[in-house]
């Protein structure tokens, strides 16, 4: 080996290392920047959702005087249930809350009862037009209900179903059914068909296999879908305003009174609209996660 090659071998590592280090620094910088921007966006989204919620909570538990004051406090001080009580004692609120519950429960029961067999059929059977039906269900979601407003009201009046709690429940069932069917279908699709076949070989009829094996495994997902129906119905306001006058649900009632009432009423109303959804979503969170493919692991 000549001296020159030896020198070049000894000499070359140093500039190489510098270049590598510089590249590494740049890569690290880029990485840090990327992470920082992801976090920044995430924080922005979180704040966009959380700040109004926090504001509603603060206001709902402040005294009516504090609610009316400006600037508003950042946390309830003093803590008080006066605003809530004022809201609850307002004419029509309790009754509309009760209506909301009745409508949501009926919608939940109906839509689950219909969506379970429908979802099962879509998940398990290959029948003519299955994909068309699936697409049809999905496109119903994309259809603006507003377009149907007048015809719907007319039909309901003609059938003598106008301004009834149960008719609104039917409407909500129709509105939530597409989502519920697709969610429940995906729950069934996540369960291997082999389970049912095994149950059938070991002495079950198809129906027994469904009751003993499929249903227990699908219950979390079905419950999640049911809760979703409940929340959708609880929050739904358009059909509620359209189809009821005396039997208003809570959102319809609040919306109706919104421009006639002060801040305490609005914030307390917001709080009541928000809480059920938050509680439900908190409980079904893990089912919603498991719904998308982790169920059979």
């Amino acid at each position: 080996m000549t001296e020159a090659t030896v020198r070049s071998e000894v000499g070359s590592p140093a500039p190489m290392t510098q270049a590598v280090q510089a590249a590494r620094r740049r890569a690290k910088m880029r990485h840090t920047l990327r992470r920082a921007s992801v976090y920044a966006v995430a924080i922005a989204i979180a704040l966009w959702i959380l700040v109004p919620i926090w504001l509603i909570f603060t206001m709902a538990f402040s005294t009516p005087q504090d609610v009316r004051s400006f600037p508003k406090p950042f946390y309830p001080s003093p803590f008080s249930t006066d605003t809530i009580e004022f809201f609850l004692n307002t004419e029509g609120v309790l009754r509309s809350t009760l209506n909301s519950f009745i409508v949501a429960i009926i919608a939940l029961l109906l839509s689950t009862a219909i969506a379970m067999p429908a979802g099962y059929a879509i998940a398990r059977f290959v029948f003519r037009g299955r994909d068309t039906i699936r697409l049809g269900i999905l496109s119903v979601r994309a259809f603006p209900v507003v377009v149907l407003a007048v015809p719907l009201a007319v039909v309901f009046i003609r059938l003598g179903m106008f301004d009834q709690t149960y008719s609104l429940a039917l409407m909500h069932t129709a509105l939530t059914l597409p989502t519920t069917i697709l969610v429940i279908a995906s729950v069934f699709m996540g369960l291997p068909y082999e389970f049912e076949e095994a149950a059938q070989v070991f002495g079950c009829t198809r129906l027994q296999a469904f009751w003993r094996v499929v249903l227990p495994l699908a219950v979390p997902g079905i419950a999640a879908a049911a809760v979703l129906t409940f929340v959708l119905s609880w929050n739904e306001v358009f059909a509620a305003i359209l189809l009821t006058i005396t039997n208003r649900t809570l959102p319809a009632q609040i919306l109706y009174n919104l421009d006639k009432s002060g801040d305490p009423y609005k914030f307390a109303g917001g709080f009541f609209m928000l809480v059920p959804s938050l509680i439900f979503i908190f409980f079904i969170r893990r089912y919603l996660f498991s719904m998308w493919g982790q169920l059979n692991k």
Partner: peptide, 12 residues
């Protein structure tokens, strides 16, 4: 009686 390829043991 049958043994299935993916066992089909009931998880619940």
């Amino acid at each position: 009686s049958m043994v299935f390829q993916n066992y089909a043991i009931f998880p619940h």
